[in-house]
Amino acid sequence: MMNQNQKLISVRNLKKYFPLKVSWLKIFKERPYVRAVDDLSFEIKYGETLGLVGESGSGKTTVGRTLVRLENPTGGQILFEDVDLAKLFGESLRTKRKDFQMIFQDPMASLNPYMRIGNAIEHPLKIHKMGNKAERKIRVYEILEKVGLPPEEFYNRFPRHLSGGQRQRVVIARAMVTNPKFVVADEVTAMLDVSIRSQILKLLIDMKNEFGLTYLFITHDLASAKYICDKIAVIYLGKIIEIAKTYDIFKEPLHPYTKILIASVPVPDPKMKKKKFIPSGEIPSPINIPSGCRFHPRCPYAMEICAKVEPELKEINGRTVACHLYD
């Protein structure tokens, strides 16, 4: 890979606000917004996997959907190689789509129930006019084989005949069939059974190694991110609060919220019955984002300044974190 150490994706000040429906009476007031993604910047190098970890309502899925332009960003840049995806529309966006793909959380819902597996995987090739009919079929067989579904058995089946894990393999095959450079994997294992989850993670790792892919791996589960990500970004209420190499995050989490997330992962050991620190409260709604540091109402280390000044995401001793504790 000639482009090692170069940026594939570079997201700058990305914003995605959703307007809220308001009643007629309040029409003259300022229109409220859900600030799902609020001024986010990060970059992903060629061949790297960045984990985006957060709770539901943190905006992590919106980041993924905006990156592959299923949503139009409210502001900011999405530099993909040298093209700003945020500025692409219509036909130029459509044809560019073969270079980036997304795998969704729910494998039961992400396949058209009326399309046979073979056709579903072939469809991206057809859309982007890649190869003739025979070539496309060979390619589909090849990719089915790669994701561990014997083509003879699965090519002509409908999604309803497949288990959740098998469907997720089909979705992965469909995402990879056009040889994209970048894939957003959104909670791909969340809806699968425990004994299937690790299989799918393994498959994603294998596919990445084989095709030299770059991933954005979105999850709420820090533990599974550990196995696949080179770097992890923790997102809270639409902002990244810490970003670091996977090893560093687990070795020494800096942000209090990161610490809490790591401590929340259940440990299968009955001897760990020790009293853990359990944070109070839940993630607030992104309509009313707390002042200052977004996390301060739940933070055990909150100081006076935290309620007033929003901490910047900055580099301190080689680590990147947004917290006043490290000022």
Partner: peptide
């Protein structure tokens, strides 16, 4: 609003293809 329609958009299908192959059969 089904995911498979999002999926069709993500693979770059034209609106007419989405309506014809993904929405209509359903």
């Amino acid at each position: 609003s089904e995911l498979y329609v999002d999926g069709a958009r993500a693979i770059g299908a034209k609106t007419s293809t989405i309506i014809g192959s993904y929405v209509f059969p359903n």
